[in-house]
């Protein structure tokens, strides 16, 4: 993989009237990465995405896709981009297949075989000749992914891709994005207001707040991945005895009683089943185990304004 970024934003600013909607965004996304835009509703995620695909003009700064300026070399730049902006709105009176033919005609070199290939990829073979009007939301979302992938883009942009998808659909999409980045080397930009979704999907996350870039960090930074230790809250029948049992175990970094009577253990994730096993062996009844919110999550909530996240 080359080090050349697939997309690079330089001091991108959008002003509407006197209001600055997007303020001085600068970041790069390298090849093969799943990059997340995280922020509450109205933070400017969709506006930024629309500027990247040329639907909205850029007031200041520039966006380069594979080195092509989206403003001055629109056709050359957009050739490498596949996108769903908000909902995948298709021509409802056409069949799914005709919709794909429509978009295939707009890019040179998309063959019939490629259309069939993409249809198979999103598992729509059985219904592709039905009118889109008859599709479920999940199927429309899949057709949306299909149209975005038709021309083998280097950069896939998905705006709130999990909106309206059931958990099964979300899981499918996630696996699918992994496949695209790992196997086909596609770069993906997704936006969401849900941290929980982002942590399962993204490699790196940019936090947007009121049009400003607050931070760009690997996702681990926000969520604490499986290899670092975290604090767990355990509710048991006999806290005193449980404390004694856990206290004898190796690898426990911290152990204390919380104010509301729970046990708080700080340890690596892999140790959690062992702790439970030990407790049960000692006939201590366990009612529940919960991961305590990390300080970083608190930080995230703080910077993004709370409530709407997680």
């Amino acid at each position: 993989m080359s080090n050349e970024p697939i997309i690079s934003l330089r001091n991108v600013t959008k002003r509407i009237g006197r209001k600055t909607v997007i303020d001085n965004l600068t970041f790069d996304v390298p090849q093969g990465e799943i990059f997340g835009f995280l922020g509450p509703n109205g933070a400017g995620k969709t506006t930024t995405i629309r500027m990247i695909v040329g639907l909205i003009s850029i007031t200041d700064g520039q966006i380069l896709i594979k080195g092509n300026n989206i403003k001055t070399d629109f056709e050359e730049a957009i050739r490498h981009v596949g996108a769903i902006v908000e909902n995948p709105e298709m021509y409802k009176y056409l069949s799914g297949y005709r919709n794909l033919v429509h978009y295939a005609r707009m890019v040179p070199g998309v063959t019939k075989a490629r259309i069939d290939e993409v249809v198979a990829l999103v598992k729509l073979e059985d219904r592709i000749h039905d009118k889109v009007r008859k599709y479920s939301l999940g199927m429309r979302q899949r057709l949306g992914v299909a149209q975005a992938l038709l021309h083998r883009p280097s950069l896939l942009i998905l705006d709130e891709p999990t909106n309206g998808l059931d958990p099964e659909g979300i899981r499918e999409l996630r696996d699918y994005l992994r496949y695209l980045t790992r196997v086909e080397g596609i770069t993906v930009i997704v936006s969401s207001h849900l941290l929980s979704e982002m942590e399962l999907m993204c490699d790196r996350v940019a936090i947007l707040q009121r049009g400003k870039l607050v931070d760009v960090q690997p996702i681990d930074y926000f969520t604490h991945g499986s290899d670092t230790s975290q604090t767990y809250q355990i509710e048991v029948q006999m806290p005193e005895q449980a404390m004694a049992v856990i206290g004898q175990m190796k690898g426990i970094e911290e152990l204390k009683r919380s104010e509301d009577g729970f046990i708080e253990v700080t340890a690596e994730r892999e140790l959690v089943p062992d702790i439970l096993e030990e407790l049960i062996k000692n006939h201590i009844r366990v009612y529940g185990v919960q991961r305590v919110r990390t300080s970083l999550e608190d930080k995230f909530l703080e910077i993004t304004g709370g409530g709407q996240v997680v």
Partner: peptide, 13 residues
């Protein structure tokens, strides 16, 4: 219908 968003993000001015 919103289809304009998918129509204008193609290599056609």
């Amino acid at each position: 219908t919103g289809t304009i968003k998918l129509l204008l993000i193609r290599p056609a001015s």
